[in-house]
């Protein structure tokens, strides 16, 4: 029995087929597992191990290296406030402190209602609108405490579902086709093109 729901399972299989080796699909598959469960559950990790031909220890060890994967459950909304250099110069530390008060949870923890997890992030490459705030990897661009509180109020009231999906939904645009350059054709083309190039080089001499 697959732990993945049919749609997720289908997307997972499509992903594996895009790479010369199944293991290469590891990072996108972990994003998918997180999309279904909101974090990397035991069952999700097992399924990724099966799909990539690895072990659960290997999958967990790989996932632990990357900041975006959560090995423990997190809130429906993961709020990140950047305090790296550009954001620091714009008051990122102060905004992070304010966010902890508004959400009622310390940095690195989840609010009592399970709605929000607060993180201090490194630079997210949105440094011109600083300090940078992201919610579930969407840049919300609220740089003042007031704007931050308004945004959180809207999320609570369910008014932001159009631009901020629940945690784990990373890429909502799906790939429309599988691989389209057949291997045999490619090998043949390559042989032809290098022969032609060699001939041109010869003629140039």
């Amino acid at each position: 029995m697959s732990h993945f729901k049919p749609d997720i399972r289908q997307r997972a299989e499509e992903l594996v087929s895009l790479y010369p080796r199944a293991r290469s699909a590891m990072l996108p598959l972990l994003h998918l597992a997180q999309e279904q469960d909101g974090y990397l559950s035991e069952e999700g990790i097992e399924e990724v191990a099966l799909l990539t031909g690895t072990t659960t220890a290997d999958v967990r060890g790989t996932a632990a290296f990357y900041d975006m994967y959560h090995l423990e459950p997190v809130g429906a909304y993961v709020v990140g406030v950047c305090t790296n250099v550009a954001c620091l110069l714009a008051g990122g530390e102060e905004l992070l402190e304010h966010a902890a008060k508004t959400l009622g949870c310390a940095v690195g923890t989840t609010s009592a209602d399970g709605l929000f997890t607060l993180e201090e992030t490194e630079c997210l490459a949105d440094c011109d609108i600083a300090p940078c705030v992201s919610v579930n990897h969407r840049f919300v661009r609220t740089t003042t405490p007031e704007a931050f509180d308004t945004m959180i109020g809207e999320v609570r009231a369910g008014m932001r579902s159009h631009d901020i999906p629940v945690h784990g939904n990373l890429i909502r645009v799906r790939r429309s086709v599988g691989l389209r350059a057949p291997r045999e054709e490619v090998i043949e083309q390559r042989a032809r093109s290098s022969a032609a190039r060699a001939q041109r080089a010869e003629e140039a001499k």
């Binding site: 790479y19 972990l30 994003h31 996932a63 990357y66 900041d67 890429i171 389209r180 350059a181």
Partner: peptide, 21 residues
């Protein structure tokens, strides 16, 4: 894809997401 714009060249591009590192 196969034979781009009718030429003798084929290519696939895969978009690969990182994960925070």
């Amino acid at each position: 894809g196969s034979k781009i714009f009718g030429s003798d060249f084929s290519l696939d591009i895969v978009v690969h997401p990182g994960a925070g590192a």
